[in-house]
């Protein structure tokens, strides 16, 4: 009989810590975007990149179980995208993200989006080294998603309520959804927007700009970098 005190997530955590140091050294603001399938993550990324490109470097890591379709949609904007095919895996892990970085250009002083696999359960437990998890909930889903998947809403720092253009046709209460999110995660930030119509996008873009400005302040001069250490 042997005694052990080791968390089984510690291997992932070590890789996430390395990623976080690399991001800090390069001054990159990193967002881990999570949601159910179809909430609008890829659409939102395309619109976000179109609005922000030219302001700072932007890259995307796409997590998908099978296809490269989402990466192709991102590449059409001109932003570099790298696809991780997770196969049967239902989430990205920090080790895979670390290697994906080798396939992207230097995003120094910019923004990296990681679109996680559409799944509100498993990605919650895996730190990738991001600054924030951002959870997308769409108005065509139930308002009670935060209560059904509390771990994900607890792990996320910002909730984006997407598909606001459909609100007039739906029986969806923004207030109720935000109330449930804050029941699970007191003080959680919430924004309502539509990736399709563009309404509400400006507040999200401003949130990103502020994050990029704060993150780029930590960048070390290139010559002093010793990455992966």
């Amino acid at each position: 009989m042997v005694q052990v005190e080791q968390d089984i997530m510690s291997a992932n955590q070590r890789h996430a810590d390395v990623n976080r140091r690399v991001f800090a050294g390069r001054g990159i603001f990193v967002i881990n975007l999570v949601s159910s399938p179809g909430s609008g993550k890829t659409t939102l990324l395309v619109k976000t990149i179109e609005a922000l490109k030219g302001e700072f470097p932007i890259g995307v890591i796409e997590g998908d179980q099978q296809t490269g379709l989402d990466a192709d949609r991102i590449a059409a904007t001109g932003a570099p995208a790298y696809q991780i095919n997770t196969g049967k895996g239902c989430h990205l892990d920090a080790h895979g993200v670390g290697h994906a970085l080798e396939h992207l250009p230097d995003l120094r002083g910019g923004l990296l989006f990681i679109e996680n696999v559409g799944n509100l359960v498993c990605p919650a437990g895996f730190d990738l080294g991001e600054a924030h998890k951002v959870v997308v909930l769409s108005t065509t889903e139930g308002e009670d998603k935060p209560l059904k998947y509390p771990d994900m809403f607890y792990a996320s720092d910002l909730m984006l309520l997407n598909k606001a253009d459909l609100l007039p046709y739906l029986d969806f209460s923004v207030e109720t959804a935000q109330g449930f999110a804050r029941q699970v995660h007191p003080g959680m930030e919430c924004l309502t927007l539509s990736a399709r119509s563009g309404e509400g996008m400006e507040a999200w873009l401003e949130w990103l700009r502020q994050g990029v400005t704060a993150a780029s302040a930590t960048a070390k001069p290139k010559v002093l970098l010793s990455e992966g250490t």
Binding site: M1, E5, D7, Y154, R182
Partner: peptide
Amino acid sequence: SYQLQILEGQQMRVKQLEV
């Protein structure tokens, strides 16, 4: 109240092994 600050509870810890 829902104003709770989580202190602990996310661990998945191996405690003991028969080997």
